[in-house]
Amino acid sequence: MKLMLRQAMLALGTTVLLAGSALAVDNVKFMIGANPGGGYDQTGRGLGKAMVEAGAAKSAQFENKGGAGGTIGLAQFANATKGDGNAMIVTGAVMVGAIVQNKPPVTLAQITPIARLFYEYNVFVVPANSPLKSMKDVVEMLKKDPGSVKWGGGSRGSVDHISVAQIAKDAGVDPTKINYVPFQGGGEASAAILGGHVTIGTSGWNEMVQFIKSGKMRALAVTSGAKLPGETVPTLKEQGINVEIGNWRGVYGAAGISADQRKSLTDAVIAGTKQKSWNDALAANDWFPAVLTGDEFSKFVDAEHKRIEESMRAVGLVK
């Protein structure tokens, strides 16, 4: 009876269940520290599906526990999964930012780094009828009167906000003097940019690309190190602003797992990232693959923690 229902569910497609051979891990369990539907959720569910398809896991389960930038999910994950070699949590720059900002009792240091997966890059845009033609124009305006440049983007402390602060710092303007207008969610921000309520806006490339292609917005710069593949929008660096910043995501394993468990989990994740469905997800969301594993990933996260903390101190978010 239960099997029948499961099959019916499968037809409806609500469960991912596929048999595979030579399983690296059994039932992989993902903790997603955000509500369903967002980028964290898509990352976890996309990776879980790819791992099952690769035959690296028998099935994938997902638990959403949103709130406080993912730190509530993190606390629950760290306490409930000690030593469980099948458990993973989705992390990223946003969670590191929330840890720096909220100083929760449980941090990433208590759990086991597995892999960084990809980067997302931001783009700076102005409405199509704006007189600003390049980042140089923006920086000049900023130097003349910092308050006159109204930057629209995501919440304070986000990658959007930090990138603006870094641009100001690079231009020799006090980062606490920027006029940053935070909006909730990309939708509100894009509406404010389209409606001309802010001078310039920044958000993920994927959210803005449609407005750029349709000519409703003009892209001034991307925040990546080099031009995005197939695109002509210049980077900040190419315009003389020494800022490169991205929003990365990755996965961590449970606290106290053995070196063997860590290795087989890492292998299973890597196998997942080689699947077509994962590469399709990367392409659809404009996620740029940047896989990094083992100690290099740990070192990377430590460096990120420091970098984000410094940026937040510069804008006065952290004392």
């Binding site: 239960k2 229902l5 569910m9 609500t14 469960t15 638990e63």
Partner: peptide, 15 residues
């Protein structure tokens, strides 16, 4: 639990 995949506590199995 079965359609929406919300994890509710159960006594002995999914049902």
């Amino acid at each position: 639990t079965l359609v929406l995949d919300v994890n509710l506590p159960h006594l002995f199995n999914d049902w």
